[in-house]
Amino acid sequence: MTALPDVVLRDVTLRDGLQLTGKTLDAGDRARLARTLLALGIPELEIGSMARPDLVPPMAGSLDVVAALTPDELDRCWIWVATPRHVEKAAAAGARNFQYCFSVSDAHNKANIGRLTDDSLAALPEAVAHARAVGGRVQLTLATAFTCPFDGPVDPARVLDIVGDPRTDGTCDVVLADTLGQAAPGQVADLFTAVRPVAGDRRLGFHGHDTWGQGVANSLAAAAAGAVVVDGALGGLGGCPFAPGASGNTATEDLLFATRPSYLTPDVLARVVTAGEHLLAELGEPSRSRTAQGVHSEAQAFPWVMR
């Protein structure tokens, strides 16, 4: 099987993955999991959110996670922000990679962030300026790039308008999110193909949910159309608390097995699966990963089976 060496997996367990869990993890446990995943070779992580903890309780203590990690570790980690003030506060704790997120649809942006899409876009240059002041970088992340839980299908032209808006200048990446997991591979390929020339030299990323079972297929379609980063969470944990119908992320284990990055060996995959199983057991959550099931197969001749 030919690997996809240019595809970078970003594990989002510690942010998107934990948002809807009934139980919470303290900052120390979250920092330890981050170190485990980084040591296993996962290139990038999403480690927390500046969302209000009264609205998203599992994200409380995200700045403590940032403070617990070394600068070298933080070079590979991202924190979710939605305002310039979020960037200031996270930067003061040591963060340098900021995932500035807002929704393409006004209705979801109002529900998720409390403002219209254009208001979030208007504040982006100030967020970039704050990040640059500490040598950091800002990623443009567009939620509901395919469908909105309130308004339905999203016009691709609206996505292109935002990506090409001069107010997004200075962002390092463009991430398109299938927030509801309702997109199909053809749609994903078409949108990334259209966005690629508009994005210029910015990296493209795909954040897909697996609600309709298309998470891996959509991620591979995005990669084939120009995305170099794909997001996943251990066991397929996660979902948006402000998007009715959004279920878990595409499973990290499944994306690793599908893309076969150079650092992935049967032992590394087994360790990732084990880390996910321990986390899910602690949280009382089920695993949605097919790969995590597959490694326990009795087909002992297959090298990817755990022994």
Rank of each mutant, 00 (worst) to 15 (best):
M1F: 08
A3R: 15
A3D: 15
L4D: 13
L4H: 14
V7F: 05
V8W: 12
R10A: 13
T13S: 13
G17S: 13
Q19F: 03
Q19P: 04
T21D: 04
D29W: 08
A31Y: 12
L33P: 09
L33Q: 14
T36Y: 08
L45V: 12
G48L: 11
D54K: 07
M59Q: 10
G61I: 07
S62K: 12
S62N: 01
D64W: 05
V65I: 07
A67Q: 01
A67V: 00
A68C: 01
D72Y: 01
R76E: 03
V81A: 04
A82F: 00
R85V: 08
H86G: 04
E88T: 07
A93H: 06
A93S: 13
R96T: 15
F98P: 11
F102Q: 04
F102K: 02
A107W: 06
A107L: 11
N109P: 00
K110V: 14
K110F: 03
A111N: 05
N112H: 01
G114K: 06
D118A: 13
D118Y: 10
D119T: 15
S120G: 02
S120T: 00
L121V: 06
A122K: 05
E126R: 09
H130P: 02
A133Q: 08
A133Y: 02
G136R: 09
G136K: 10
G136D: 14
L140V: 09
A143P: 02
T144V: 06
A145N: 02
A145I: 08
C148A: 04
C148V: 08
D151S: 15
D151R: 06
G152R: 03
P153H: 08
D155P: 03
D155E: 11
A157I: 04
L160T: 09
I162T: 04
R167N: 08
R167M: 01
D169M: 08
D169R: 14
D169T: 15
C172A: 14
D173T: 10
L180P: 10
L180K: 10
L180A: 11
G181D: 05
P185L: 00
G186N: 05
V188F: 00
R196H: 14
V198Q: 09
A199M: 12
D201E: 15
R203A: 12
R203F: 15
G205R: 14
G205M: 15
F206E: 06
G208T: 12
D210M: 15
N218R: 02
S219G: 04
S219Y: 05
A222F: 03
A225M: 03
G226H: 09
V228F: 03
V229C: 08
V229P: 01
V230L: 07
G232R: 09
G239Y: 08
S247C: 11
T252D: 13
E253A: 05
A258D: 07
S262P: 01
L264F: 10
L264E: 05
L264K: 11
A270V: 09
R271H: 10
G276I: 05
E277I: 00
H278L: 13
L280F: 00
L280A: 03
L280C: 04
L283Q: 08
P286D: 02
R288H: 15
R290V: 05
R290A: 11
T291L: 11
T291H: 13
G294H: 13
H296I: 10
A299H: 13
A301F: 12
A301L: 11
F302I: 11
P303L: 03
V305F: 07
